[in-house]
Write a protein that binds this DNA or RNA. Structure first.
Lengths: 213, 213
DNA sequence: GTCTATACCCGGATAGAC
DNA sequence: GTCTATCCGGGTATAGAC
């Protein structure tokens, strides 16, 4: 029997595993989800993950990949929608909203995706890091290109550093520790404040040579 | 026998465990250090950690606590040394250097400490988070107080967000993923550029109310 | 009081029966 | 395709040697 249905909603084992993994990943983060948690939630056997996906990590990678694809597509769509002469703040907003702000009153699926992206962003796992770098590259490069027109005083290197630092901050702010420090602030307001901060950081004058007037 | 010496250098078991744990923690990060790694490196039995420290986490907490103490003391010393009318950039420099820049040509012990602090900063472990919050609080509050004089246009809430975001970025930049993105940049130069970026972010105008001219 | 051997539980992977 | 049994590595608790 390859499907478990009551009212025709449940699908085959791989789908159920994917669904359970995605839900648990978004709820608890990769660090606190065991193989048994997933298979129990999916009503499947421990070995089923190995059979259908190869390993726990392979399943998680797939789930993360799907989530990231949608987040980055959303980001790309927002960017494509902006006129060619869009202001820096609009660009930053298109950058930040899909990766962070969806904590707010968005639909369940979207909230899951951003949780998963943030979890991936502060994940030390090499596989996920590679995945992230591979998938983020196209949008981020496009973003950098458009941002660079607004900050001509920055070298490539310096813009790259700031972009990286902002990404690092966005990822880390999703962790329990930092999220706890910011609990109590309205998420929409938080997004606005983050955008203002990021724009300020990007437009700042570059570091001059030390002790040289 | 409570000590293992060749030339009178090696100490008792707890010290050797602490030393090994500190070294491995700085080298690989908490996620990739097992109890057996530590005890093997220290020439001790698996159970010795439980006996002397209670648990692996307790030992790691102790090591982290020691490292953080020194980092925050250094930060406090740098701050105390600055004149009352110190500029924002100097304040930020005193903030960033102990927590980040020591990647550079510093001595071994200091490099270890900053590696451990960065690892702790992007560690999801609740115990470490609590530790971090407890230990960082005094210096960070003092820092915030002095910074706030330079950015009177920011509300408490907004300054807190930016401070948190910068902390998050500093922690995450130490992770393999982000460190890899910045490999190839001279560490001293990186520190200067980070300072410039942070100052810019702090001095940026706050977020206005959305869609209200 | 210090240390060791050992056994236990958990989590992931996998071989082989069905 | 599915399941059981088993192995291995990791953290912990304890019994007993010295």
């Amino acid at each position: 029997m390859s499907s478990e249905c009551l009212n025709g909603v449940m699908q085959d084992t791989p789908s159920r595993l994917r669904e359970a993994a995605e839900r648990l990943l978004a709820e608890r983060g990769a660090a606190r989800v065991s193989l048994r948690d997933i298979t129990d939630a999916a009503g499947a056997n421990v070995a089923s993950v190995g059979y259908h996906f190869g390993s726990k990590d392979a399943l998680l990678d797939e789930v993360v990949r799907d989530s990231l694809t949608e987040v980055f597509e959303q980001q790309a769509a927002l960017l494509a929608q902006l006129p060619d002469d869009a202001g820096l703040e609009e660009l930053v907003r298109a950058w930040v909203l899909p990766t962070f702000a969806a904590h707010a009153g968005q639909d369940e699926a979207r909230r899951r995706r951003t949780r998963i992206l943030q979890d991936a962003l502060h994940q030390p796992s090499p596989a996920i890091s590679a995945l992230l770098a591979e998938m983020a590259a196209p949008v981020q490069l496009h973003l950098l290109d458009r941002i660079s027109r607004h900050v001509p005083h920055l070298s490539q290197e310096e813009l790259w550093l700031r972009h990286t630092a902002v990404l690092a901050a966005l990822g880390a702010l999703g962790s329990d520790f930092f999220a706890g420090m910011l609990a109590g602030t309205d998420p929409d307001r938080l997004a606005d404040q983050l955008v203002a901060w990021i724009v300020g950081g990007l437009t700042a004058d570059p570091a001059g040579p030390r002790h040289t007037p």
